[in-house]
Amino acid sequence: MALNTPQITPTKKITVRAIGEELPRGDYQRCPQCDMLFSLPEINSHQSAYCPRCQAKIRDGRDWSLTRLAAMAFTMLLLMPFAWGEPLLHIWLLGIRIDANVMQGIWQMTKQGDAITGSMVFFCVIGAPLILVTSIAYLWFGNRLGMNLRPVLLMLERLKEWVMLDIYLVGIGVASIKVQDYAHIQAGVGLFSFVALVILTTVTLSHLNVEELWERFYPQRPATRRDEKLRVCLGCHFTGYPDQRGRCPRCHIPLRLRRRHSLQKCWAALLASIVLLLPANLLPISIIYLNGGRQEDTILSGIMSLASSNIAVAGIVFIASILVPFTKVIVMFTLLLSIHFKCQQGLRTRILLLRMVTWIGRWSMLDLFVISLTMSLINRDQILAFTMGPAAFYFGAAVILTILAVEWLDSRLLWDAHESGNARFDD
Rank of each mutant, 00 (worst) to 15 (best):
L66S: 14
L300G: 05
G85N: 11
G240R: 04
N44M: 11
M103T: 11
Y168I: 06
P219Q: 09
V102C: 05
G95Y: 06
P279S: 11
W64L: 15
G188K: 11
M120I: 08
G190Y: 03
Y28S: 15
L414I: 08
R245D: 07
V232G: 11
L200E: 11
S65R: 09
I351K: 11
L278I: 07
H418S: 13
P32V: 14
L384Q: 01
N379G: 01
L257A: 06
C248P: 00
L191P: 03
N291I: 15
L213N: 13
R97Q: 04
G85H: 10
R294F: 02
L263M: 13
P6G: 12
Y28G: 14
V313S: 12
K342Y: 11
M375E: 13
A128K: 01
C236T: 00
L377M: 07
I136C: 04
N379Y: 02
L404E: 11
I322A: 10
F341D: 05
S286M: 03
R68V: 04
R68C: 03
V189F: 06
L69Y: 15
R158V: 15
P254T: 02
I43K: 14
E211P: 13
G396H: 01
S273F: 01
P284M: 05
T110E: 15
I91T: 06
Y138H: 06
A398F: 02
P249A: 04
M76R: 06
F318A: 04
Q104P: 02
L165R: 01
G190P: 04
G118L: 00
L404M: 14
T9H: 12
P151M: 02
L353S: 14
S48E: 15
L23S: 10
Q244L: 09
S305W: 01
T334S: 11
G188N: 11
E211K: 15
I126D: 05
Y394P: 02
T334Y: 13
F38L: 07
R226D: 11
T402W: 10
Q108I: 14
M109A: 13
I116V: 09
S45T: 12
R53C: 14
P6N: 08
M332V: 12
G190D: 02
T204V: 09
L323H: 02
S119L: 01
K265R: 03
C236V: 00
V121C: 05
D297P: 01
Q264L: 02
L3P: 13
F82A: 07
Q104D: 14
L149T: 10
Q47P: 04
R68Y: 10
L169H: 03
S364H: 02
Q112C: 09
D416W: 10
I14D: 08
N148Q: 07
L347T: 09
L278V: 11
S338R: 13
I316M: 13
L335N: 06
T374L: 04
E407S: 08
A223D: 11
E228N: 12
D166R: 15
F192I: 12
T327L: 13
H261R: 03
A307F: 11
Q382K: 02
A128V: 13
L77C: 15
R380C: 02
M164R: 06
E212F: 14
Q47S: 07
V121K: 04
I303G: 06
P254Q: 13
R53E: 10
T334M: 14
L401S: 06
S193R: 03
L404V: 14
I287R: 06
A71K: 02
R226I: 10
E22Q: 14
Q295V: 09
L234F: 09
S321M: 02
I400K: 04
R231P: 03
K342L: 09
I285Y: 00
Y28M: 13
L413S: 07
K160R: 14
D63T: 15
S286Y: 02
W64K: 11
F369L: 03
R362Q: 07
A18G: 09
E212L: 15
G113Y: 05
D381M: 05
L276M: 10
K111R: 14
V232I: 05
L69K: 05
Q344K: 15
N379F: 02
I319L: 12
A391P: 01
N4I: 15
L278W: 06
A423W: 08
L213W: 05
C251S: 03
R158C: 13
L283E: 06
P41Y: 11
R294I: 03
T327P: 01
Y168R: 00
L197E: 07
C233K: 00
P151C: 03
I311Y: 09
K229I: 09
R25K: 09
E157T: 14
I167M: 02
L94K: 00
N422H: 09
L336Q: 10
L368R: 00
Q295R: 06
P325C: 06
L154Y: 02
W162R: 02
I360G: 12
I116T: 06
V357Y: 00
K342E: 12
A269Q: 02
A397R: 00
L159T: 03
A83V: 06
F122S: 14
I383N: 02
R380Q: 01
T204M: 10
L88M: 15
A417T: 07
L230Y: 08
Q108C: 15
P242H: 06
A56K: 13
P222G: 11
L156Q: 14
M388L: 05
R256H: 05
A385K: 04
V16Q: 14
T134P: 05
K178W: 00
M109E: 07
V203Y: 08
L283G: 03
Y218Q: 03
P52L: 11
R258I: 04
L88Y: 04
T117I: 01
